[in-house]
Computed example of a mutant assay.
Amino acid sequence: MKKISKLVLIVFISIFLSVIYGITRDFITAKISPEFYTKFLFFNFGILDDYERTFSGNWTFALIWVGFFSTWWFGLLAGLILGIVGMKYSDENQMLNEELKSIFIVIGITIIFGFVGYGIAELNPSETIKNYNFPFRIEHKAEFNKVSKIHNFSNFGGIVGLIIGTFNLIKN
Results as ranks from 00 to 15, higher is better:
F134V: 15
F113K: 03
S56L: 03
Y89P: 00
F74L: 09
I107T: 09
F153P: 01
G117Q: 12
S126K: 15
G79Q: 03
E99D: 13
E99I: 13
I64P: 03
T71K: 07
L82F: 14
G86N: 02
L123T: 04
E122V: 10
M87T: 05
D91N: 15
E99Q: 14
L63I: 10
K146R: 12
K141A: 12
N133G: 10
I64E: 08
F136I: 13
I111S: 00
N155F: 14
A142Y: 01
S126H: 02
G117I: 06
T60I: 15
T54E: 15
N145P: 00
S102G: 07
I103N: 07
F104A: 08
N124H: 13
I150Q: 02
F136M: 11
N124C: 02
P125V: 11
I84R: 04
I81Y: 01
R137C: 06
D91Y: 06
G86V: 09
I120T: 09
G83Y: 08
S154H: 12
G157F: 02
E122I: 09
G57W: 09
T54M: 03
G79V: 10
K149Q: 04
L76T: 13
G75R: 07
T128A: 05
T110V: 03
K141T: 11
K149I: 00
F69C: 01
G114K: 01
G86M: 06
I150M: 12
G83L: 12
G83E: 05
H151E: 11
K101W: 10
G114S: 04
E127T: 15
P125R: 12
H140N: 13
T60V: 13
I103C: 06
F104N: 12
G119E: 10
T60P: 08
V147F: 02
G79E: 07
G79Y: 06
K146C: 00
H151R: 13
Q94I: 15
L82P: 04
G57R: 07
G86F: 10
G57D: 08
N97Y: 12
L63K: 10
W73L: 09
L76Q: 06
G79P: 10
F115P: 00
N58E: 11
K141C: 00
D91S: 09
L100D: 06
G67Q: 02
N124A: 12
P135F: 01
G117A: 09
I103Q: 06
K141F: 05
Q94S: 15
I111R: 02
I109W: 04
T54Q: 10
G114W: 05
G119L: 15
M95S: 14
P135I: 07
Y118A: 05
V147C: 05
K146V: 02
E143I: 04
V116H: 09
S102V: 08
N133A: 02
W65M: 07
K101D: 13
L63P: 10
F153N: 00
H151Y: 11
I84C: 02
T71M: 11
S56C: 00
S56Q: 13
I112Y: 08
G157S: 03
R137P: 00
V147L: 00
G86E: 05
I103R: 06
A62D: 08
I129G: 05
